[in-house]
């Protein structure tokens, strides 16, 4: 936007003799902005204004006057525990899924692993990271639900999972389910970064007598750390905003922020819209913060891997 004003002053300062030319130029410049105008209009209408509405509504009463009553909701015990649980679930699955994805991605690159495995793995990862939501929830109910196939296997082996307090509807079950789409996503994000660890670096380290472990400890890992952390932040946001998976898995009987919002919306719509908005506002703040960290880390990585 800044350069468009710069460009128009340039035209304004042109000598009067080429006035016709400058009008034509200006018209062309206008046309060029017109080509991106629909995009800006669209995102304003269907993304920016609805988001603004969430923020405004979070600070309004039903009659429309300014109020902090929505914010008060954010300090109530149930809400606080919902945020705590959602953040906990997202952190666990981002770190566990992130580490698993990292190990698997690195495994495909190590010597002695056939090359055809990599494309197979990325395709599988593409499927698994997109196979989320309602079908995934039912797949896990069929797997580790109370009559799930693996639950029954364990029973045959004499281990009664459900007798020991395990349930697919709890935080552990949810974590296992989330990791199903988290670790393949990690593979997709981190594989290009791992491939970017150049062979020359390794050879240079080996030539001065570094063991593989030393190479990773002092060169590879520090180089990759920003990408890894960035990817984990993305996984965090991915889990934090999940609604379909926990809702379908627990029929809504779990205290997570998205599920709580769904309850507000599915209940009496007109009752207290500012409460749903206050929660949604809280979500945007948490994810916005995570993405800010991601952007900062990304900037650092880009410098290294150029």
């Amino acid at each position: 936007m800044a350069s468009s004003s710069g460009a128009s002053t340039e035209v304004d300062e042109a000598p009067a003799g080429i006035g016709i030319m400058s009008t034509r130029l200006r018209r062309r410049r206008l046309l060029r902005w017109l080509i991106v105008a629909p995009f800006f209009a669209y995102v304003t209408g269907f993304l920016l204004i609805p988001t603004g509405e969430v923020v405004l509504q979070a600070f309004r009463t039903q009659s429309g006057s300014f109020s902090f009553s929505g914010m008060h909701l954010l300090t109530e015990p149930q809400t606080v525990s919902a945020f705590e649980q959602t953040i906990k679930l997202s952190l666990i699955t981002a770190v566990a899924g992130g580490l698993l994805g990292l190990f698997v991605a690195q495994a495909t690159l190590s010597r002695g692993i056939p090359g055809w495995l990599r494309p197979v793995l990325t395709t599988f990862s593409g499927v698994a990271s997109n196979f989320a939501g309602v079908p995934l929830a039912f797949a896990f109910i069929a797997t580790i639900g109370s009559t799930g196939v693996i639950t029954l296997w364990f029973k045959h082996l004499g281990l009664d999972l459900y007798g020991h307090g395990f349930t697919v509807y709890g935080l552990t079950g949810l974590s296992l389910t989330y990791i199903y789409f988290q670790f393949p996503l990690m593979i997709l994000i981190i594989l290009p970064a791992l491939e970017g660890v150049r062979r020359e670096w390794r050879e240079a380290a080996t030539s001065v007598g570094a063991t593989p472990l030393q190479f990773w400890r002092f060169v590879g890992f520090p180089l990759l750390l920003p990408s890894i952390l960035g990817a984990v932040v993305l996984l965090f946001g991915n889990a934090f905003s999940a609604y379909a998976t926990p809702y379908a898995l627990t029929s809504g009987y779990i205290n997570l922020v998205p599920v709580l919002i769904g309850e507000f919306l599915n209940g009496d719509l007109a009752s207290e819209p500012q409460l749903g908005s206050a929660l949604a506002f809280g979500m945007i703040v948490v994810i916005g913060f995570a993405v800010l960290i991601y952007a900062l880390l990304q900037r650092r990585t880009a410098k290294w891997l150029r």
Binding site: L47, P50, T51, I261, I287, V291
Partner: peptide, 23 residues
């Protein structure tokens, strides 16, 4: 920047905003 915003605004928050706006 705008194209990564849908990631910051989760679908459920977008739904809240849309419902509030077009109720």
């Amino acid at each position: 920047f705008i194209s990564v915003l849908p990631f910051v605004v989760p679908p459920i928050a977008l739904a809240v905003g849309v419902i509030g706006l077009f109720q």
